[in-house]
């Protein structure tokens, strides 16, 4: 099958930063270097032929013993063209860190807080990066593969 216009354009514009390109089940998937995240996202949003104006999902995966360990996954939709794109960014330990997309899509705010809460990945440039579902006293990040299944959190008492 012929590569879609999105994949062609990304390969043309950011050839050096593209790690992998695939299209399983017609789902365009691009893996890019973390340093190129903001330029690529800006390009996807603002290019007149693409117009990926909707950030559908933002999550992360912990591949534990692989290096780099984490991968942040973005799903974009172009409402005007009905294009969909999956963008992946590998993030390495220690201090996993990736640029925030809140300046482009304000909706990324809570998604990034959730990823920070569950995986401990820092988003640089995020306006208010703190836990969203768990409470401030929580120790660790429960969706990491090395979070012990039997671990008990310290009990928190009433605040008088």
């Amino acid at each position: 099958m012929e590569a879609s216009i999105t994949l062609k354009k990304i390969k043309e514009g950011f050839g050096n930063d593209v790690i992998e390109v695939d299209s399983p089940f017609q789902q365009d998937t691009v893996v890019i270097a973390p340093s190129a995240l903001l330029p690529v996202a800006t390009f996807l949003k603002e290019d007149p032929e693409l117009q990926y104006n909707y950030l559908m999902d933002l999550t992360a995966v912990d591949y534990w013993k692989r290096k780099p360990r984490f991968e942040v996954v973005y799903h974009f939709l172009s409402v005007a063209n009905s294009f969909r794109l999956r963008l992946k960014v590998p993030v390495a330990e220690p201090e996993p860190k990736v640029d925030s997309l809140t300046s482009l899509w304000p909706g990324a705010n809570w998604y990034e807080r959730e990823v920070y809460d569950m995986f401990g990945i820092q988003f640089t440039g995020h306006p208010d990066l703190r836990r969203i579902l768990l409470y401030p006293e929580f120790e660790g990040h429960p969706l990491r593969k090395d979070y012990p299944i039997k671990r008990r959190q310290p009990l928190i008492g009433p605040k008088h």
Binding site: F138, Q153, L155, I156, G157, P158, K159
Partner: peptide, 13 residues
């Protein structure tokens, strides 16, 4: 849930 626990303790008290 752990997050709700302090509320329950406060209700009991």
């Amino acid at each position: 849930s752990q997050k709700l626990a302090p509320v329950l303790v406060q209700i009991y008290e």
